[in-house]
Amino acid sequence: MMNEQWRAVCRLDDIEPETGVGVRLPDHRQAALFRTRDDRLFALDNHDPFSHANVLARGLLGSLQGRRVVASPIYKQHFCLDTGQCLEDEGVRLSVYPVRVSQGQVELLVEPSP
C-alpha cells in the first residue's frame, strides 16, 4: 500500500454534474470518473467487461434499490458505484478508486503498476 499515490486528473468543473469522464491512468489503464448531481465523486474501471470496450464513463448514472449505479451504454448492465459490483452478474466486480477533491483538483488514489 505504500506505493499508492493521489494523482490529480482534472478540475472539478471539468465534469458536468450527473455525468462521467474517462481518465487515463498509467499502463494503459482507464478509469471512469463520475460526478453526481449532489456532487459526490466515484471512480471505477472504464473497461466494460461485457463488451470489452472502454466506455463506462459514458454510461447513465442512477440508483436501483438504494444503490448508486452506472449502466453500461452497450449492453446496459449496472455496476454499483461504491463497490464496483455488477448487479446482474455476481461474479463480476470492477475495481474502484478512491477519489478526493483538493483545491479544486480531482484526485484519484492509484497504485502504480503492479
Binding site: 458536468e16 450527473e18 455525468t19 463488451s51 470496450a53 466506455v55 459514458r58 447513465l60 451504454p73
Partner: peptide
Amino acid sequence: DPALAGLQDTNDYFMANMQRDG
C-alpha cells in the same frame, strides 16, 4: 443543454450511434 445532457443515452449525448468497440 446543461439540464438535459445528463439524461441522454450515450447515442443522444454524442449525437452518434455507439458501436461495439465504443
